[in-house]
Simulated scan of single mutants.
Amino acid sequence: MNDAEFIHLDIRESIAWIRIEQPEKLNALSVEVMRELSDALDVVDQDDEVRVVVVQGDDRAFSVGYDIAQEVAMGVATAEQWYGGLEANIALTMKVWGLNKPVIGAVSGWCLAGGCELAMACDLIVCTDDAQFGEPEIRFGSGPVTLLMPFLIGQKATNELLYTGDTIDAHRAKELGLVNHVVAWEDLDGNVERLARKIALTPLPILRYTKRALTRAYTAMGLQTAVDDNHAIAAVLNSAVTPERAEFTEIVASKGLKAALAWRDARFAQVDAR
């Protein structure tokens, strides 16, 4: 991992700390970031000295999701193109979900869209009290890529978040069972390390088999089938032609992603203000 540009890996006393480092894009999951993150996960999964893995972003954002500007620049448009692209996105999230040792998500700031899915794939989440979670991509004509949310917070809360694109704060996320602990920003690393060290006291084979049992329980409940079925639906959803999606894409191409997101949010601000 010495040549990685966007992922920093630090292994200390049986705990692997993986940090996403693309602050100028709020840790957006570009093709390059995802490739390096996947490589880091492979390294720690195969290292028998590692018992617990921590995935984190920076102070402002865990991750705001997939790199929309890159997708627009690549010209991804048809259902077939989206299906191929989404395959890599799903594979990364499910690699975290199925890693052979526990993964803790250390979340501060924005945790949105594909970034939220990545966090949800972690076995545990500790977040700061300023964290924000959600899948706002629905507001410009996209949708969740890896459909984990119904299995974590239930039908009604999932329906509301995925129909509206709303975000929720850290305390609401804890109420819904999306996160385990909410802490002050300055206490995040210390709390995550204490939790990781407690878990790391358990022998690695026991952790591996316990995680295998837990993931298989969710498989028996239909999680993998839901993820697989959603792959094809998401490809069609992302290629659907709507005036809103067309305008959003045009603004990204002509004025940049920041302007496009401002346009998107302004459409909903009028309703939120009432």
Rank of each mutant, 00 (worst) to 15 (best):
Q56D: 13
K211S: 01
E80Y: 04
K95S: 00
I20A: 11
V64K: 00
D229L: 01
I104F: 08
D67G: 03
L207H: 01
L261C: 04
R51W: 15
V55F: 03
M74N: 11
L176Q: 05
V126M: 02
K198W: 05
C127S: 05
V271I: 12
Q155M: 07
T202D: 02
A119W: 02
K101Y: 00
A235S: 06
Q56A: 13
E135S: 12
N2M: 12
D45G: 07
D58S: 11
Q46T: 10
V72A: 14
Q81S: 09
L37T: 09
L37S: 14
W82T: 10
T242I: 08
T78V: 15
V103N: 02
E71L: 13
E250H: 13
E24R: 09
L29Y: 08
S30P: 09
A121E: 02
L188R: 06
G115P: 00
L204W: 06
N191G: 04
P136A: 14
F248V: 12
A157W: 01
D39Y: 12
G143N: 05
L178R: 07
G98Q: 03
D123N: 05
D169R: 05
A232Q: 03
K174V: 02
G143D: 01
G143S: 08
W110N: 05
D59M: 06
A266E: 07
G84P: 00
G75F: 07
M221P: 10
M149R: 05
W17V: 13
T225A: 10
P203D: 04
A61E: 03
E193T: 02
D39A: 12
A91I: 03
V241M: 12
W17L: 11
A200P: 03
G143Y: 08
A260L: 12
K25D: 09
I90W: 04
K156F: 07
Y66P: 06
V43A: 15
E32H: 13
L237S: 15
T242H: 08
A259V: 03
G141D: 11
D3E: 11
